[in-house]
Amino acid sequence: MTLFVIFKTILGLVFLFLGLLHFYWLFGGKWALKTTVPTKTNIKNQFKPPVLATILVGLGLLFFGFFFWYRIDTSFNWPTLVNDYLGWIIAGIFLLRAIGEFNYLGIFKRVKGTDFAKMDTHVYIPLCLMIVIMITIIELLIGL
């Protein structure tokens, strides 16, 4: 099994899991919900994500998974622009998420003592960087 196939499979599974998790929350699921929204303190959430945003993020993540699973499948023809640039765009999205917005999330966040901030540091940022690295390797291998 090549590195390419391993990475595209891992990415597909990660995106599938994350996309389905968003729909689980949309329909009232509570698992892992407490640490998914940035907070000033451990008591009060900064915001409640709108339903439409949760749906769009869930669908986007599912689409990203589909994209990587079928990236090299010769029976599925992506439009040239999608095939050439979407992987890099997805990597850029996750790199920006890892960097953050300098207050509540990302490498340069200022609020660091909350449950969300701890999960961000130990889980979300490394996951985003892992995604960026795997996509970069896939895109570079395709370009060879």
Rank of each mutant, 00 (worst) to 15 (best):
N45Y: 11
L86V: 12
I125K: 11
A117N: 04
L33Y: 15
L86E: 01
L105N: 04
I135N: 03
W78E: 09
I93L: 14
G58P: 08
G19S: 04
R97C: 01
L62Q: 06
D73T: 14
L127Q: 11
V82E: 05
Q46D: 09
Y85P: 00
R71G: 02
L59I: 11
G92T: 03
V51D: 08
I138W: 03
L56I: 13
F108M: 12
K48Q: 15
F47M: 14
F102L: 14
Y24R: 00
F27E: 01
F68M: 10
L16M: 12
L59P: 06
L13W: 07
I131S: 06
D84M: 08
L26K: 02
F27W: 13
F66R: 02
I133K: 02
A32M: 15
L20P: 04
L20G: 03
R71C: 09
G12H: 03
L129I: 14
F102G: 02
L105T: 11
M134R: 04
L11F: 03
P50C: 08
N103M: 11
L61F: 08
L96G: 03
G28K: 00
M134C: 09
T136M: 07
T136E: 05
L16T: 09
L20V: 12
M119L: 10
M130V: 13
W88D: 07
A117W: 04
L144M: 13
I133C: 10
Y70W: 12
Y85A: 03
L59A: 11
I138A: 06
